[in-house]
C-alpha cells in the first residue's frame, strides 16, 4: 500500500458514539463518556472532530443510511402500480420503514428527529436527508398544482408519522403497534 495516513481512528470514534447513543441515549453522550469508552483523553477526541456536534452529525448520517437502506430494499420488492396507488404504497412503506427503524434504533431516531437533531436539518451535509417525501414530489410527473398539493400532503404525512412514532416512544406498551398502524392507515386514507 503506497499511502501513508495521518488519521486512523475516526471510524472507531463514530462506531463507539453510535453504540453509546443507541444503548444509553443521547443525554448520556458526552466527550468524556466517549473518551472513557475509547480509553483515550477527551482532548484526543477533539483532535479528530471540532466539537461533539460534528460526531453527532456523523451518527445522524449513519442513521439515515440505515433507514434509507430499509426503505430502498422494501421499495425494490414492489410492483409498478397506478400513480395514485403507487404513492399510497410508497407512503405506507415509508411509514413501516420509519417505525421499524425507530423500534430497532430508538435512541438514534430520537437524535435524528427530535429537537436534539434540529441543527442537522439546516446543515449542508444532512439537510437533504430530512423531508424525504416532499422532495420526491418534484420527481413525480404531475401538473404544477397537483404537485404543489402532493408536496403539502407528503409534508403533513411525514409530520404525522414522526408524531405517532414519538407517541409510541413515549407511551411504549400503552400505544401498541397495531394501534399505531391503524393511525398510519387512517392518515393515509384521509390524505391520499
Amino acid at each position: 500500500m503506497a499511502r501513508k495516513k495521518l488519521i486512523f481512528d475516526r471510524q472507531k470514534i463514530i462506531d463507539s458514539s453510535f453504540n453509546i447513543i443507541l444503548n444509553e441515549g443521547i443525554d448520556a453522550f458526552t466527550a468524556r463518556r466517549l473518551a472513557l469508552e475509547l480509553k483515550i483523553s477527551s482532548m484526543t477526541v477533539y483532535n479528530y472532530y471540532k466539537n461533539i456536534d460534528e460526531i453527532k452529525k456523523e451518527v445522524v448520517i449513519r442513521g439515515f443510511s440505515i433507514l434509507y437502506k430499509m426503505f430502498f430494499n422494501a421499495m425494490q420488492e414492489q410492483e409498478r402500480l397506478s400513480t395514485k396507488d403507487y404513492i399510497k404504497r410508497l407512503c405506507r412503506i415509508f411509514a413501516t420503514s420509519m417505525i421499524n427503524f425507530a423500534r430497532e434504533y430508538k435512541e438514534i431516531y430520537v437524535l435524528m428527529f427530535t429537537e436534539h437533531g434540529s441543527k442537522f436539518r439546516k446543515d449542508h451535509e444532512t439537510r437533504l436527508f430530512y423531508n424525504f417525501l416532499p422532495q420526491l414530489a418534484d420527481r413525480i410527473r404531475l401538473g404544477q398544482d397537483e404537485r404543489a398539493d402532493l408536496k403539502k400532503k407528503f409534508y403533513l404525512y411525514e409530520i404525522i408519522i414522526q408524531g405517532l412514532i414519538m407517541e409510541k416512544i413515549r407511551k411504549a406498551n400503552d400505544f401498541p403497534r397495531h394501534q399505531l398502524d391503524e393511525y398510519v392507515d387512517f392518515s393515509l386514507d384521509c390524505l391520499f
Partner: peptide, 12 residues
Amino acid sequence: SISHFLKMNKMI
C-alpha cells in the same frame, strides 16, 4: 445515504 436516496428518487 446519498446513493440510497438517489436510487429511490430515480425508482419513483
